[in-house]
Design a protein around this nucleic acid. Structure first.
Length: 866
RNA sequence: GGAAGUUUAGCUCAGCUGGGAGAGCAUCCGCCUUACAAGCGGAGGGUCAUAGGUUCGAGCCCUAUAACUUCCACCA
């Protein structure tokens, strides 16, 4: 093995070998249980960022352990076509050439889009491979590939025939500049200073007025009601009456609706169903007329009389003037509020009514609610179960049509001659009703989430390949982000249930966000992000992977910093060096398994510790607490294995029973490498293959299992460790530098054999020239004495010993012990505690009391000798 | 506006069904001890956000408050 840890020398080489050996390939294997993860597909044109590195590595860690545990482990990768983002990028590119998509036409435009995909496709996949991800690359999927198209078509036809797809009206975000509807995600809300215009409408048949406030007086022309809260005492009597809409002199009703907040404004709202999403909803509930008053470019249309042709800004000005003249304007207040802007052109968007396609949700959502309520689909973080259910209970019909060209075109054809609507698996060429060949397909495409919702099904071959589906589906765990619980997770659940009759996954893990060192979200515009590609370049993949998880909970947001990368580098370097040491010890020796040798005390201790570790790490893994599992492994490796065991083993290595130590070193290192492998796959493989006993690759090696514990020896070793700590402490207190050896005398009071066995451990770790086991106490005037329950330790430090100081030290020990005794006595004297506390706690407390009482006696006797 | 999360050492975070406040980094002291100075040994450092409550016992459970973060909605 090379002297220094140089990850770049072997990481990519090792990965290539894994690919060649097809370790990540998963096929139906009746002798194994499957374990499946479907990757949430990253945008096909994206580049690796910290969010990917974090989320995908979580999955790699999970799947690698399962593979080692003997499951047929499938991690199925894929990419997303990201319709909106791509369409907007391609449009921008065209714009630079002075073109628009309309100038190209649909077909040519889609060619451009595909060229764009081809150009960027693969970058993100290559970067995932660099990260060491153990995906079955043969199954790489794309949300626009054939299987997905087919699944989408199947589902659409299925829903259509069931009568669950329909065309309806809805308010969309309309950009008057782009002359297109845009999705909610493309709307930027910005705080804009404006006014609150207080208006008064005359109540029909009276001289009374109703006062209301609005930020958009120009939409008054499209008003079809005013609304108040049904519980509002001020207006209760007016509900059902009419007011006269000023300027147009049209009577409109006063309706009662919960949407209105009593203590906002005057508690009265004008309702414009055609130009406000909330008003539209109110309109539906009260069956109100929908009056569209705007053209596509946001000028007022011909229904607006003298205002027709004005822009919305001009109209606002004119209408306010006219209202003032007519005596309907009460006052103008300053008011600033959020206004939606087009992300691309920054124009203020206009909510407009238009025709859209919908999926009826009332039936399809029912089983999806049930499986989560019953935890058949289990959100590992309970809080998200609430998020999900809250959304599902209030779920309205799903608008699936988008006015984009990129994406899955809605497979509905209308006969231009007889009006017959056709929706089948194959594109029709003639009308089945009238035989006409004049068929027109819908222009709109489907919401990206429509196909994403089928991801676990389509990637496994739905609706065709029933075998893979039967074996790998339902998948085991979904790892995804908080903000798409409703958009994606929910839709996969009802889709799986409706189209295949089973849940798509059993566990849902929602991962946190990786933020910068200050706790700010990493963003391109802020430029505060760390690029994982830079970390890989400078430190290697394992170090990046390790740094992402050390000491964090994956469900919470974490902070990433260069500092953490350095700490990780230090750890991996430690792993390298410790392994190098172990390999040196094993070289040229016959290495036996630990059940074939007579183990030393330290060997038994570390073996017990490793077995506890395996249990604990497994427990954490099973709770998806992988950040904590990593930290525990790191701590164990560094402190228990390196600082304690390797140091202790050095004394046994030079003894006659070194074969046990060799066996133990081999066993412990092998186990630790395997446990660490899911986190840091490359370095562990590199070292593993150097070990004398190894399988073909650590990737397919067997995950460690608990073998045996040595309870007695574990306790004994820990007692010795406690003594070692106390001696080291005394050395430092007396300022004895580490380059000066001391001599140590031990007077056993109990278990004499233990001290004979351990003398060399103490000698080595306390930097002693010799450790003498004595039978009788000698004069202690020139020695420091340390009192334990089972022994006394003397450090004859001659001139450094000050009998006054020694007396003080013993007195301090006595104080401490008395305090402990007092504490125990108080607790045990408390009738409430004795009556209510669990028995094991009371027993433990009694035991402590006993030991401390004995210790106190010894200490007091020691003090008396001064 | 609605909901959720966080608040523990100077920093980053652990702390299991309530039962003596932990780790790493940083700081200070001492060491080139034959795997590792990117290292080894040791030490100091905390009113567990605040105020109440439940309990024999609260970092943990309940109530309120504050600050920060996130998600959803976008409100006349």
């Amino acid at each position: 093995m090379e002297k220094n840890y140089e990850p770049h020398n072997f990481e990519s080489q090792i990965y290539q070998n894994w690919l060649n050996k097809k370790y990540f390939r998963a096929t139906i294997n009746k002798n194994k249980k499957p374990f499946t993860i479907i990757m949430p597909p990253p945008n096909v044109t994206s580049k690796l960022h910290m969010g990917h590195a974090f989320q995908q590595t979580i999955q790699d860690i999970i799947i690698r352990r399962k593979r080692m545990q003997g499951y047929e482990a499938l991690w199925l990768p894929g990419t997303d076509h990201a319709a909106i983002a791509t369409e907007s990028m391609v449009c921008k590119k065209l714009e630079k050439q002075g073109l628009t998509k309309e100038m190209l036409g649909r077909e040519a435009f889609l060619k451009e889009v595909n060229a764009w995909y081809d150009e960027y496709k693969g970058t993100i996949i290559d970067q995932f491979k660099t990260m060491g991800y153990s995906c079955d690359w043969d199954r790489l999927a794309f949300t626009m590939d054939e299987q997905n198209n087919k699944a989408g078509r199947w589902v659409f036809v299925h829903l259509y025939k069931k009568g669950w797809i329909y065309k309806g009206k809805r308010i969309v975000n309309w950009c008057p500049h782009c002359k297109s509807s845009i999705s909610d995600a493309e709307v930027e809300f910005k705080e804009v200073p404006s006014h609150f215009w207080h208006l008064r409408y005359q109540i029909e048949g009276t001289n009374d007025y109703l006062e209301l406030a609005t930020t958009r007086p120009e939409t008054l022309l499209g008003d079809s009601a005013v609304a108040v809260n049904p519980n509002d005492e001020r207006y209760k009597d007016l509900v059902g009456k009419n007011v006269i809409l000023p300027l147009v002199n049209r009577p409109i009703p006063i309706v009662a609706d919960d949407y209105v907040e009593m203590d906002f404004g005057t508690g009265v709202v004008k309702i414009t169903p055609a130009h406000d999403p909330n008003d539209f909803e109110v309109g539906l509930r009260h069956n109100l007329e929908v009056i569209k008053i705007l053209n596509d470019d946001a000028t007022l249309n011909d229904k607006c009389g003298k205002y027709a042709g004005m822009t919305r800004e001009q109209a606002r000005e004119e209408i306010v003037k006219d209202l003032e003249k007519a005596g309907n304007l009460v006052k103008i207040e300053d008011y600033s509020h959020n206004v939606g802007h087009c992300e691309r052109c920054k124009t203020i968007i206009e909510p407009l009514i238009s025709s859209q396609w919908f999926v009826k949700m009332s039936e399809i959502k029912k089983p999806a609610i049930k499986v989560v309520e019953e935890d058949k689909v289990h959100f590992v973080d309970e809080q998200y179960k609430k998020t999900y259910l809250h959304w599902m209970y209030n779920l309205n019909d799903w608008c699936i049509s988008r006015q984009l060209w990129n994406g899955h075109r809605i497979p509905i054809f209308t006969c231009q001659d007889c009006g017959e609507v056709i929706c089948e698996m194959e594109d029709p060429t003639i009308c089945p009703k009238c035989g006409s060949k004049h068929l027109a397909q819908e222009q709109d495409t489907l919401d990206t989430w429509f196909s994403s919702a089928l991801w676990p099904l389509s990637t496994l071959g739905f609706p065709d390949k029933k075998e893979d589906l039967a074996y790998f589906y339902p998948t085991d765990v979904l790892v995804t982000a908080r903000e798409i619980i409703n958009l994606w997770v929910a839709r996969m659940i009802f889709s799986g249930l409706e189209y295949y009759g089973d849940i798509p996954f059993r566990d849902v893990v929602i991962n946190g966000i990786v933020k910068d060192a200050q706790g700010k979200k990493m963003s391109k515009t802020l430029g505060n992000g760390t690029d994982p590609r830079d970390v890989i370049k400078n430190y290697g993949v394992d170090i990046l992977r390790y740094s992402l998880f050390n000491g964090i909970s994956i469900n919470m947001d974490s902070k990433f910093s260069e500092k953490k990368v350095e700490l990780s580098r230090n750890f991996l370097n430690k792993v390298w060096n410790a392994s190098k040491y172990v390999l040196m010890q094993l070289e040229g020796k016959e290495v036996k398994t630990i059940d074939k040798v007579k183990l030393n005390l330290a060997d038994k201790w570390i073996i017990s510790q490793v077995n506890d570790l395996i249990e604990s790490v497994d427990r954490k893994f099973d709770k998806y607490d992988i950040g904590m599992a990593e930290s525990e492994l790191g701590d164990f490796f560094w402190s228990k294995f390196c600082d304690w065991y390797i140091e202790l083993s050095k004394t046994d290595m030079s003894g006659e029973n070194s074969e046990a130590t060799i066996a133990t070193l081999n066993y412990v290192l092998t186990s630790l490498l395997k446990l660490l492998h899911p986190f840091i796959p490359f370095i562990t493989e590199k070292i593993y293959l150097e070990l004398p006993m190894h399988e073909e690759s650590i990737v397919i090696s067997k995950w460690p299992e608990k073998v045996r514990n040595f309870e007695v020896e574990e306790k004994e070793m820990e007692e010795i460790m406690e003594i070692i700590n106390a001696i080291r402490n005394a050395r430092n207190e007396k300022n004895v530098p580490d380059n000066k050896k001391i001599s140590i005398e031990i007077l056993p009071l109990n278990n004499n054999k233990l001290f004979e066995i351990s003398a060399n451990y103490i000698k080595k770790l306390c930097i002693a020239s010799d450790v003498k086991i004595i039978e009788k106490e000698e004069s202690s005037t020139n020695a420091i004495s340390l009192i334990f329950n089972d022994c006394k330790v003397f450090l004859p430090l001659e001139s450094l010993v000050d009998s006054k100081e020694e007396k003080g030290r013993i007195e301090k020990e006595i104080e401490k012990t008395k305090f402990e005794i007092n504490r125990s006595q108080k607790m045990l004297g408390n009738p409430g505690f004795v009556a209510k506390a669990p028995k094991n706690l009371i027993d433990a407390e009694n035991e402590k009391l006993k030991r401390n009482t004995e210790l106190l006696a010894k200490l007091e006797k020691e003090l008396a000798s001064f």
